[in-house]
Write a protein that binds this DNA or RNA. Sequence first.
DNA 1: CTGCAGGCCCTTA
DNA 2: TAAGGGCCTGCA
Length: 272
Amino acid sequence: MAVEVFCGDFCIEQIANSGQCFRIERVSPGIWEVIALGNRLIVRKNQLQEQKYHIFECSQSEYDCIWSKYFDMPRDYSSIKDKIYATGDPYLIQAVNFGYGIRILQQDLWEVLISFIISQQNNISRIKGIIKKLCAQNNLYFPSPEEIASYSENDLKKIGLGYRASYVKNAAMSVCSGNFSLEKLRSMNYSNAITYLKSLEGVGEKVANCVALFGLQKLDAFPIDVWIKRILEREYGGIESFQIERFPGFAGIVQQYMFFYERFRRDCPKNT
DNA sequence: CTGCAGGCCCTTA
DNA sequence: TAAGGGCCTGCA
């Protein structure tokens, strides 16, 4: 069972490296394993003559019900890219060209919340390792709020959460008690969602924006981390002078292109 | 051995 | 409201 996906604005390798998701791994050259929403999927890159495409190892109905939505396939990224091109912003044009195939995944809200609390003051390989240990019981499933709440702060520290252990434990307990409602969060608009998220300990402006973007699909979210800050200062003369209102309803996608481009420039300086 | 990684909290002034 | 120190941990 396999589904062939022909889409110029989809590249599993770029998505895997974009840093929005911590559970997509390259298992061998040209082959990726995606774990999400209690499912595992193998995605292969392929090429037929000139035409590049991907093969999803799943049934058509699984693709339609799960993966199409997860990979945000209904959204027309080429029209969004056109809007970015239309700004004439030279830095963004480079970033967009470089980040071909990146999409904003529609990940599980709870998993995104915990993953990005863990991400603070942390590096990606360590974040991945911690999440792997968190999911050790059954690596297809991300532990529920009840499961995480049942761990002691010390259990969480043992798997490497450090000072974030209490944040994660408290978030889980708040959800379990109904004090913090994921359903309520889902129903909120962007700015209310940010305020609500920030009521959790260990969730500030940056993490809240990541959760809004990757877990709530609020494309107005624009997480500013050290990488983005660096870009805004170097290319635009500071955060205040970057005109985010140029990107109504798709600022978060712009942020992904910028982040990906900036990170690459550090990892492979020779190639820039 | 320091420094630092996709921040946040808390304390001061 | 702005600035600065401290924080878990692992790796260069």
